[in-house]
Design a protein around this nucleic acid. Structure first.
Length: 490
RNA sequence: CGGGGUGUAGCGCAGCCCGGUUAGCGCGCGUCGUUCGGGACGACGAGGCCGAUGGUUCGAAUCCAUUCACCCCGACCA
């Protein structure tokens, strides 16, 4: 398998594509721009979902589900929102097919035209806020803290597995609050949840900040984001949390009666992460030998491979392997015993390595004799022979180490590829090499636009923790209050 | 939507320019045997209306026209 994998150096995006398909995470489907998420990939997504879902619930949110279809008229109610999404909407216009009288199979029955077209949701603010109008009357109904796990459709021109697909899976939180401050706090809280998840589960270090006006979500007052740096020096937006102000409340007329008996508009947030995180996971940790998965999200954390010649050996090893499997499972570790007799050990080694399983245990006749076991870790590719005694403790510890090591490696990579840049000439040189460029910016959309046109670099974020350092804009030379992060992005 | 490219077995490709009988190769797949501590080997075997439609021709994977799909580079984007 690995021998067929394009190296990262040769062609990073080819490497990514090969890896995603050959490791069995996902593949392109018969539908343009839409992927099939395969069992091995979906299992990882399920682990992400489970961790995130718990974090959402621990912060007081509940799950609900809203319709896939949104009446077209809802979209026109929030002007900047419609502008942001109009160009990539799938639209349902008819509700019936009929047999083609000319024998061409089924065709759209033109008589079955919808009176109002339905948009396949690209995001659910409009249908949700239209619903919230009926749910909220009093300050006592607030805050309303709801999350939805769903699929959405954005008709993208160019798609890439996980990173940008016409349909993708995500969660979207939509909350309603009595005060501006509370809504801002919510948006910031969820940003922190995302950052926590990215760093502690995905082992991906992220920067936290806000978007510039140009990059802001359509309809938001403020867009908070976490940004990660991939191995090739391009940035990837890993999650966003929006403070929506009263924009949607006003558009959908969602008011509440305050303690003071006054009618007031509700304050809103929305926040989401998507299957794009799968792409971030691959591009952060994996190498030329295949996937590298952080233990906390790997669907199989430990694989046990038996090495045997005879049926008797196989039976003896199986007894031992199942014993170890049980001990590991008692520690909450996800273990697979690969007892397939249709493949040789060498094949299994490379297959599991390619699939990124964090720890591999091998047991052969020699091990049975010596009470040892071979332990191989995927992140460093090191292997050693250990005593079988208390192996579950050693493996448990090793998994923790791997998780930490992956994060540290990613962090080191980001540190190594983050550059303070003070002149435009420097900027032009460095942007070609990739990485985050931390530079002064005059705060204007015009400058941001010019920089984008000339270099393809965008402002990834304005850091939350602002330094007090002032300076001159890298491009215009105008005064700047703080440095921002530039990068080319996915 | 602009520019470039590709459609032949599950996957990767050759054949096409210069039309000619049963359309090849590698990987993968199946059976049997020998193997099994890092991707095994041998023998035999299965698998194709050559993207679609129409035309030229005695004859089309090959030539012509139309069409569809996909990929890459731009504009758009989680």
């Amino acid at each position: 398998m690995a021998k067929d994998l394009t190296s990262r150096e040769d062609n990073y995006s080819q490497w990514y594509n090969d890896l995603v398909t050959k490791a069995g995470l996902a593949e392109n489907s018969a539908v343009r721009g839409c992927m099939v998420i395969k069992p091995y990939g979906y299992a990882i997504w399920e682990n992400m979902q489970a961790a995130l879902d718990k974090m959402f619930k621990d912060t007081g949110h509940e799950n609900a589900y809203f319709p896939l279809f949104i009446p077209k008229s809802f979209f026109s109610k929030e002007a900047s929102h419609v502008e942001g999404f109009a160009k990539e909407c799938a639209v349902v216009t008819h509700y019936r097919l009929k047999n083609d009288p000319n024998g061409g199979g089924v065709i759209v029955d033109e008589t079955a035209k919808l009176e109002e077209e339905l948009i396949v949701r690209p995001t659910s603010e409009t249908i949700i806020w239209n619903t919230y109008r009926d749910w909220i009357q009093s300050y006592r109904d607030l805050p309303l803290l709801i999350n939805q796990w769903a699929n959405v459709v954005r008709w993208e021109m160019r798609t890439r597995l996980f990173l940008r697909t016409a349909e993708f899976l995500w969660q979207e939180g939509h909350t309603a609050h009595a005060t501006q401050q509370e809504a801002i706090e919510e948006a910031e809280k969820m940003l922190n949840v995302y950052a926590d998840f990215a760093e502690n589960w995905m082992a991906i270090p992220v920067l936290k900040g806000v978007k510039s006006a140009n990059e802001r979500f359509a309809g938001a007052i403020e867009t908070y984001c976490i940004e990660a740096l991939m191995q090739d020096g391009k940035a990837l937006q890993a999650g966003t949390s929006h403070f929506l102000g009263q924009n949607f409340a006003k558009a959908f007329d969602v008011k509440f009666l305050s303690k003071e008996n006054k009618q007031e508009y509700v304050w809103a947030t929305s926040w989401g992460v998507s299957t794009r995180l799968m792409g971030a996971l691959v591009m952060t940790h994996s190498d030329d030998n295949g996937l590298v998965l952080p233990p906390k999200l790997a669907s199989v954390q430990v694989v046990i491979v038996p090495i045997y010649r005879t049926e008797e050996q196989f039976e003896a090893i199986t007894i031992k392997a199942l014993e170890i499997k049980k001990k590991l499972e008692e520690k909450g570790i996800r273990v697979k015993y690969d007892n397939r007799d249709t493949h040789k050990p060498g094949f299994k080694f490379s297959e599991w390595e390619f699939k990124g399983v964090p720890v591999r245990l091998a047991i052969g006749p020699r091990d049975l004799e010596n009470e040892t076991i071979e332990v191989a870790r995927r992140d460093t590719l090191e292997k050693e022979s250990l005593q079988m005694l208390n192996i579950e403790l050693k493996v448990e510890h090793l998994l923790e180490q791997i998780q930490k090591n992956l994060f540290q490696k990613a962090l080191d990579n980001r540190t190594l590829n983050t550059f303070k840049v003070d002149t435009w000439a420097e900027f032009l040189v460095q942007i070609e090499k990739g990485g985050f460029l931390v530079a002064h910016w005059d705060g204007t959309a015009e400058t941001e636009q010019k920089i984008k046109e000339e270099t393809k670099a965008t402002i990834r974020l304005i850091p939350l923790e602002q330094s007090t350092e002032t300076g001159k804009c890298i491009y215009s030379g105008a005064p700047s209050k703080a440095r921002v992060y530039f990068a080319r992005a996915y």
